[in-house]
Design a protein around this nucleic acid. Structure first.
Length: 259
DNA sequence: ATGGTCGTCTCACGA
Protein backbone atom coordinates (compact mmCIF):
# COMPACT_ATOMS: atom_id res chain seq x y z
CA UNK A 1 0.00 0.00 0.00
CA UNK A 2 1.30 3.41 -0.96
CA UNK A 3 0.05 6.67 0.50
CA UNK A 4 0.96 10.24 -0.37
CA UNK A 5 0.43 13.81 0.77
CA UNK A 6 0.45 16.99 -1.32
CA UNK A 7 -0.26 20.62 -0.54
CA UNK A 8 -1.76 21.64 -3.89
CA UNK A 9 -2.32 25.37 -3.18
CA UNK A 10 -5.78 25.47 -4.79
CA UNK A 11 -7.27 22.25 -6.12
CA UNK A 12 -9.23 24.36 -8.59
CA UNK A 13 -5.98 25.37 -10.27
CA UNK A 14 -4.09 22.13 -9.63
CA UNK A 15 -6.66 19.45 -10.49
CA UNK A 16 -4.95 18.69 -13.84
CA UNK A 17 -1.65 18.18 -12.02
CA UNK A 18 -3.28 15.92 -9.45
CA UNK A 19 -4.88 13.80 -12.17
CA UNK A 20 -1.65 13.64 -14.19
CA UNK A 21 0.35 12.72 -11.09
CA UNK A 22 -2.10 10.00 -10.03
CA UNK A 23 -1.91 8.44 -13.48
CA UNK A 24 1.85 8.10 -13.07
CA UNK A 25 1.70 7.34 -9.33
CA UNK A 26 -1.47 5.36 -8.66
CA UNK A 27 -1.14 5.47 -4.89
CA UNK A 28 -3.97 3.96 -2.84
CA UNK A 29 -4.40 7.16 -0.82
CA UNK A 30 -3.59 10.83 -1.51
CA UNK A 31 -4.08 13.45 1.20
CA UNK A 32 -4.44 17.04 -0.03
CA UNK A 33 -4.02 20.36 1.74
CA UNK A 34 -4.90 23.93 0.78
CA UNK A 35 -7.67 22.82 -1.52
CA UNK A 36 -9.19 26.34 -1.15
CA UNK A 37 -12.56 25.03 -2.29
CA UNK A 38 -15.97 25.07 -0.70
CA UNK A 39 -17.39 21.55 -0.51
CA UNK A 40 -20.01 22.28 -3.18
CA UNK A 41 -17.21 22.88 -5.70
CA UNK A 42 -15.14 19.79 -4.89
CA UNK A 43 -14.37 17.89 -8.14
CA UNK A 44 -15.94 14.62 -7.03
CA UNK A 45 -16.77 13.37 -10.51
CA UNK A 46 -13.36 13.98 -12.10
CA UNK A 47 -11.68 12.12 -9.24
CA UNK A 48 -14.19 9.28 -9.31
CA UNK A 49 -13.50 8.88 -13.02
CA UNK A 50 -9.82 8.56 -12.11
CA UNK A 51 -10.68 5.78 -9.66
CA UNK A 52 -10.71 7.73 -6.39
CA UNK A 53 -13.35 8.22 -3.74
CA UNK A 54 -13.02 11.57 -1.97
CA UNK A 55 -13.78 13.11 1.39
CA UNK A 56 -13.20 16.80 1.99
CA UNK A 57 -13.51 19.60 4.50
CA UNK A 58 -13.25 22.89 2.68
CA UNK A 59 -13.90 26.58 3.01
CA UNK A 60 -13.70 29.55 0.70
CA UNK A 61 -10.29 30.89 -0.36
CA UNK A 62 -8.14 29.47 2.44
CA UNK A 63 -7.16 26.13 3.96
CA UNK A 64 -9.19 23.03 3.12
CA UNK A 65 -8.16 19.37 3.35
CA UNK A 66 -9.23 16.27 1.44
CA UNK A 67 -8.44 12.57 1.20
CA UNK A 68 -8.62 10.64 -2.08
CA UNK A 69 -8.69 6.85 -1.90
CA UNK A 70 -8.99 3.87 -4.21
CA UNK A 71 -10.42 1.91 -1.26
CA UNK A 72 -13.57 2.66 0.76
CA UNK A 73 -13.29 5.40 3.39
CA UNK A 74 -15.01 5.26 6.78
CA UNK A 75 -14.98 6.77 10.30
CA UNK A 76 -14.46 10.32 9.06
CA UNK A 77 -13.97 13.21 11.46
CA UNK A 78 -12.96 16.81 10.90
CA UNK A 79 -11.19 19.29 13.16
CA UNK A 80 -9.36 18.97 16.46
CA UNK A 81 -11.50 17.84 19.38
CA UNK A 82 -11.80 20.60 21.94
CA UNK A 83 -10.44 23.26 19.58
CA UNK A 84 -13.24 25.25 18.01
CA UNK A 85 -11.92 26.57 14.72
CA UNK A 86 -13.60 27.72 11.49
CA UNK A 87 -10.33 26.99 9.64
CA UNK A 88 -10.52 23.59 7.95
CA UNK A 89 -7.19 21.95 8.71
CA UNK A 90 -7.81 18.42 9.95
CA UNK A 91 -9.46 15.42 8.30
CA UNK A 92 -9.17 11.93 9.78
CA UNK A 93 -10.51 8.68 8.38
CA UNK A 94 -10.09 4.92 8.22
CA UNK A 95 -9.12 3.16 4.99
CA UNK A 96 -8.96 -0.61 5.27
CA UNK A 97 -6.42 -1.40 8.01
CA UNK A 98 -5.03 2.15 7.98
CA UNK A 99 -6.02 5.08 10.17
CA UNK A 100 -5.10 8.38 8.51
CA UNK A 101 -4.94 11.89 9.94
CA UNK A 102 -4.48 14.58 7.28
CA UNK A 103 -3.16 17.93 8.55
CA UNK A 104 -2.68 21.43 7.30
CA UNK A 105 -0.74 22.88 10.23
CA UNK A 106 -1.02 26.68 10.59
CA UNK A 107 1.81 28.55 8.89
CA UNK A 108 2.48 30.88 11.82
CA UNK A 109 3.47 33.86 9.66
CA UNK A 110 6.29 35.14 11.91
CA UNK A 111 7.71 34.30 15.31
CA UNK A 112 5.91 36.34 17.94
CA UNK A 113 2.85 37.10 15.81
CA UNK A 114 -0.74 36.24 16.74
CA UNK A 115 -0.70 33.57 14.04
CA UNK A 116 2.42 32.05 15.59
CA UNK A 117 0.70 31.82 18.99
CA UNK A 118 -2.29 30.20 17.26
CA UNK A 119 0.07 27.70 15.60
CA UNK A 120 1.65 26.66 18.90
CA UNK A 121 -1.72 26.37 20.67
CA UNK A 122 -3.02 24.33 17.74
CA UNK A 123 0.00 22.00 17.87
CA UNK A 124 -0.43 21.48 21.61
CA UNK A 125 -4.04 20.45 21.04
CA UNK A 126 -2.96 18.25 18.15
CA UNK A 127 -0.61 16.33 20.41
CA UNK A 128 -3.45 15.39 22.76
CA UNK A 129 -5.67 14.41 19.84
CA UNK A 130 -2.98 12.20 18.28
CA UNK A 131 -2.35 10.50 21.60
CA UNK A 132 -5.99 9.39 21.53
CA UNK A 133 -5.86 8.37 17.86
CA UNK A 134 -2.72 6.34 18.51
CA UNK A 135 -4.31 4.56 21.45
CA UNK A 136 -7.32 3.63 19.33
CA UNK A 137 -5.53 2.87 16.06
CA UNK A 138 -2.15 1.08 16.12
CA UNK A 139 -1.72 1.47 12.35
CA UNK A 140 -1.80 5.27 12.26
CA UNK A 141 -0.29 7.62 9.68
CA UNK A 142 -0.26 11.36 10.32
CA UNK A 143 0.43 13.18 7.09
CA UNK A 144 0.34 16.64 5.65
CA UNK A 145 1.87 20.09 5.52
CA UNK A 146 3.38 20.50 8.99
CA UNK A 147 4.84 23.93 8.26
CA UNK A 148 7.84 22.89 10.39
CA UNK A 149 11.24 21.77 9.12
CA UNK A 150 12.18 19.07 11.66
CA UNK A 151 15.96 19.60 11.65
CA UNK A 152 18.64 21.73 10.05
CA UNK A 153 19.34 19.01 7.46
CA UNK A 154 15.81 19.71 6.19
CA UNK A 155 16.67 23.36 5.44
CA UNK A 156 18.70 24.70 2.51
CA UNK A 157 20.31 27.49 4.55
CA UNK A 158 20.00 26.70 8.27
CA UNK A 159 21.89 29.81 9.33
CA UNK A 160 19.52 32.10 7.44
CA UNK A 161 16.48 30.24 8.78
CA UNK A 162 17.68 29.92 12.38
CA UNK A 163 14.94 31.07 14.75
CA UNK A 164 12.59 31.96 11.88
CA UNK A 165 9.06 30.65 11.54
CA UNK A 166 9.01 27.06 10.20
CA UNK A 167 12.36 26.43 11.95
CA UNK A 168 12.05 27.99 15.41
CA UNK A 169 12.79 25.97 18.51
CA UNK A 170 9.23 26.09 19.95
CA UNK A 171 7.85 24.77 16.65
CA UNK A 172 10.44 21.99 16.52
CA UNK A 173 9.69 21.15 20.15
CA UNK A 174 5.98 20.88 19.30
CA UNK A 175 6.83 18.49 16.48
CA UNK A 176 9.14 16.64 18.86
CA UNK A 177 6.21 16.18 21.23
CA UNK A 178 4.39 14.33 18.41
CA UNK A 179 7.43 12.12 17.85
CA UNK A 180 7.56 11.48 21.59
CA UNK A 181 4.15 9.81 21.26
CA UNK A 182 5.96 7.14 19.25
CA UNK A 183 5.43 8.52 15.76
CA UNK A 184 8.35 8.33 13.34
CA UNK A 185 9.25 10.58 10.41
CA UNK A 186 8.96 7.97 7.66
CA UNK A 187 11.47 9.59 5.32
CA UNK A 188 14.13 9.37 8.02
CA UNK A 189 13.55 5.62 8.37
CA UNK A 190 15.29 5.26 5.03
CA UNK A 191 17.31 8.38 4.32
CA UNK A 192 19.80 10.34 6.42
CA UNK A 193 20.90 12.82 3.77
CA UNK A 194 20.11 16.51 3.79
CA UNK A 195 19.02 18.44 0.72
CA UNK A 196 15.64 16.71 0.47
CA UNK A 197 12.90 19.32 0.36
CA UNK A 198 9.15 19.40 -0.21
CA UNK A 199 8.48 23.15 -0.44
CA UNK A 200 10.17 25.91 -2.38
CA UNK A 201 9.04 29.54 -2.23
CA UNK A 202 7.58 30.84 -5.49
CA UNK A 203 9.90 33.83 -5.19
CA UNK A 204 13.56 34.13 -6.05
CA UNK A 205 13.56 31.07 -8.33
CA UNK A 206 13.92 29.02 -5.17
CA UNK A 207 13.17 25.69 -6.87
CA UNK A 208 15.70 26.16 -9.65
CA UNK A 209 18.27 27.18 -7.05
CA UNK A 210 17.40 24.19 -4.82
CA UNK A 211 16.53 26.51 -1.94
CA UNK A 212 13.78 24.56 -0.17
CA UNK A 213 12.56 23.18 3.13
CA UNK A 214 11.19 19.76 4.03
CA UNK A 215 7.94 20.63 5.79
CA UNK A 216 5.57 18.01 4.32
CA UNK A 217 5.80 14.83 6.35
CA UNK A 218 4.39 11.34 6.71
CA UNK A 219 4.60 10.34 10.38
CA UNK A 220 3.93 6.70 11.18
CA UNK A 221 3.08 4.69 14.27
CA UNK A 222 5.49 1.94 15.38
CA UNK A 223 3.40 -0.78 13.71
CA UNK A 224 3.49 1.12 10.42
CA UNK A 225 7.17 1.99 10.76
CA UNK A 226 7.94 -1.74 10.88
CA UNK A 227 6.22 -2.16 7.54
CA UNK A 228 7.40 1.02 5.84
CA UNK A 229 9.47 0.02 2.82
CA UNK A 230 9.73 3.36 1.01
CA UNK A 231 9.45 7.09 1.72
CA UNK A 232 10.47 9.89 -0.60
CA UNK A 233 9.62 13.26 -2.06
CA UNK A 234 8.62 13.41 -5.73
CA UNK A 235 9.97 16.82 -6.72
CA UNK A 236 9.06 16.43 -10.39
CA UNK A 237 5.64 18.17 -10.25
CA UNK A 238 7.29 21.24 -8.72
CA UNK A 239 8.99 21.70 -12.09
CA UNK A 240 5.75 21.53 -14.11
CA UNK A 241 4.12 24.60 -15.59
CA UNK A 242 2.08 26.57 -13.03
CA UNK A 243 3.03 24.29 -10.12
CA UNK A 244 2.05 24.16 -6.50
CA UNK A 245 4.85 25.46 -4.30
CA UNK A 246 4.86 22.01 -2.60
CA UNK A 247 5.80 18.59 -3.96
CA UNK A 248 4.09 15.29 -3.10
CA UNK A 249 5.59 12.97 -0.49
CA UNK A 250 5.07 9.21 -0.75
CA UNK A 251 5.37 6.32 1.70
CA UNK A 252 4.99 2.65 0.84
CA UNK A 253 4.13 -0.20 3.19
CA UNK A 254 4.31 -3.96 3.15
CA UNK A 255 0.85 -5.51 3.66
CA UNK A 256 -0.76 -4.27 6.88
CA UNK A 257 -2.61 -6.28 9.48
CA UNK A 258 -6.33 -6.43 8.75
CA UNK A 259 -8.84 -4.66 10.95
C1' DA B 1 18.92 45.41 -5.09
C1' DT B 2 16.39 43.96 2.00
C1' DG B 3 12.58 42.65 -3.18
C1' DG B 4 11.60 39.19 -6.03
C1' DT B 5 5.37 35.12 -6.60
C1' DC B 6 1.40 32.90 -6.28
C1' DG B 7 -3.94 32.29 -5.20
C1' DT B 8 -7.86 34.35 -3.67
C1' DC B 9 -13.06 36.90 -1.08
C1' DT B 10 -7.76 40.85 -5.99
C1' DC B 11 -5.80 47.70 -5.30
C1' DA B 12 -5.06 43.46 0.29
C1' DC B 13 -3.87 39.51 2.54
C1' DG B 14 -2.10 34.94 3.51
C1' DA B 15 1.44 31.84 2.34
Amino acid sequence: MRIATWNVNSLNVRLPHVLDWLRENPVEVLALQETKLVDAKFPVEALRAAGYEAIYAGQSAYNGVAVLSRLPISAVRTGLPGFEDPQQRVLACTIGPLRLVNLYVPNGQAVGSDKYAYKLAWLAQLRDYLQTELANHPQLAVVGDFNIAPEDRDVHDPAAWAGQVLCSEPERAALGALLDLGLRDSLRLHEAAGGIYSWWDYRMQAFRRKRGLRIDLILVSPALAERCVESRVDAIPRGWERPSDHAPVIAGFAPLDGV
